[in-house]
Amino acid sequence: MGDYKVPVKYLLSHITKLEIIDAPKITTKTIEIGSKYSPDFVCTPFKYTLGTMIESIEKGSNVLIQAGGGCRYGYYSELQKQILKDLGYDIVLINLVTAGITDPIKIYKELKKVTKINIVKSLYYLLITKKMVKYMDNIDDYIRKNIGFEVKKNSFIKLKNKMLKSFSKIKGYFDLKKQYKKYLNEFKQLKINKPNNPIKIAIVGELYTIMEPFANYFLEYELASKNIEITRFTNVDYLLFRKSKEVKKMLKKNRDIKYKMGADASDNICRTRMLCEEGYDGIIHIKSSFCTPEIGAMPIISKICAQYKIPIIFFSFDAATSEVGIKTRLEAFYDMLEMRRSK
């Protein structure tokens, strides 16, 4: 998903003896294949991942890893396994999260079935990978805040691609740290033309659609091209390593909800209130169609935004969403924020 294949590939290529095949870039064809073999009313991430699986198998993979998740997504892997089997593919599918729980011993056992694994070495590389994800997310946060104001077109993207390339080849923990500092510095050197108080938009919503640019029609780039500073909280570092703690903390402080609502719904509700209090110009909520936890969160989120009079817009992305329709709504949203500012 997105650029996270770099750390994942790094990890697997160092701890296993398997040949790692790059998952093909998501294209229109991926989603076509995925939709063809998926139940129609399942949420879009299922279709994207199934499409990617089939394309990867056709590229030669026979072991697939599925990340799983805290909602229906947690059961997807089983269903996808069955669909692939029915299609006649003979593969091993390893699920990292089963019914909402990550069980390292179970994953280790499953991996051991297909390859040799050295536990000590794995722990070392896991540590590096964790750090790499964190560094990537830090850099991405900086990019989101500044890419809309770049002086030279594509300078941020070019540098990021260069960074990802060197990250994929780092030699160890200290090398990673060195590279990160080097690139962070280079990013800060990139020329930007940022006003003192630019329009600030935060993006909340369902994790897959937020993190996979193809699934949200490159929404962040579209916003950046309008000179907007973008904030988002959902990234892999957050989901894997900080979420459980932070959600507990947020739920304690927040009065809108008492209980967890599955996946990221409760985070997004708490976040929305924080964002409103911080005085963001607008909030964009995105999800894939039929995402149940977020559907539950939406009425609460719009109520909070109405209280603070902060504009919010909801987008629901499906395999067959009209791009023009999204653009029209987005343009209008931007106009609205600008008009509010100038009054």
Partner: peptide, 10 residues
């Protein structure tokens, strides 16, 4: 005199 909310059929 300013737009505060809008919706369009999808």
């Amino acid at each position: 005199g300013i737009i505060i909310d809008y919706a369009m059929n999808t």
